[in-house]
Computed example of a mutant assay.
Amino acid sequence: MAGRLVEALFTALDGQTFVVPGTDAAGAIVPQLAKNLTALPDQRRELAAAIKELLEPRPPSVPLTSMPATDVRTEPRILIDVRDGSAFPTAA
């Protein structure tokens, strides 16, 4: 039954004469978007490695990365907000 349904759908599609405006543009854009999405995981790994390399020489790096749920993404955010800590009058 599924095979007949698929065949019927393709037969109906082959008989279509109406073309939605933008179909040609989508054919040009979608492959590029797919290529960009495929590259994102590699780009994220490269950026994470670069950020980690930049943070390693900083003294606060070891204590921050040892905190639970703190990783290469949250550590820079903490360093941006807290900086060297001099804005805080006490450790409390």
Rank of each mutant, 00 (worst) to 15 (best):
Q16S: 12
A12R: 13
E75T: 01
V30K: 05
A69M: 08
S66K: 15
I29N: 10
G27S: 03
F88M: 10
G27I: 05
Q16C: 12
D42R: 04
T70E: 04
K35C: 09
P89T: 07
L13F: 11
V30H: 00
V20G: 08
G22V: 06
L33Y: 05
L79R: 14
R73K: 14
E75V: 01
T70N: 07
V6W: 06
Q16W: 12
A69I: 07
T17H: 06
F88Y: 11
Q43I: 02
V19M: 04
E46Q: 07
A50C: 06
T23M: 14
D81Q: 09
D71G: 15
P21Q: 13
R58F: 00
A39E: 05
M67P: 10
P89E: 06
D81R: 04
S66L: 06
Q43F: 04
T38D: 08
A34E: 05
D42L: 03
R45F: 03
G85L: 07
R77Q: 05
A91F: 00
A69H: 08
E56V: 09
L54Q: 12
D84W: 03
F10I: 08
R4I: 07
V62Y: 00
I51V: 12
M1K: 12
P31I: 07
A91W: 02
D84R: 12
K35G: 14
V82H: 07
A49Q: 05
E53K: 05
F10Q: 13
A34G: 05
R58I: 02
G15K: 01
D24Y: 12
L55T: 01
I78N: 05
D14G: 10
N36T: 00
G85E: 10
T65N: 04
T23K: 15
Q43T: 01
P31R: 11
K35W: 11
V20K: 12
D14F: 13
I29D: 13
L54E: 09
G85A: 12
E7K: 02
D14A: 15
M1P: 08
R73W: 09
F18G: 02
D24E: 14
L37C: 06
P68D: 07
I78S: 08
R45H: 01
L79N: 14
P31Q: 13
E75M: 01
V19N: 00
E46D: 14
R83A: 15
G27L: 09
A50H: 10
I29F: 15
A69C: 06
L13T: 12
D71T: 10
I51D: 05
T11L: 05
D42G: 08
G22M: 06
T74Y: 13
L5H: 01
L64F: 02
A87R: 15
R45T: 00
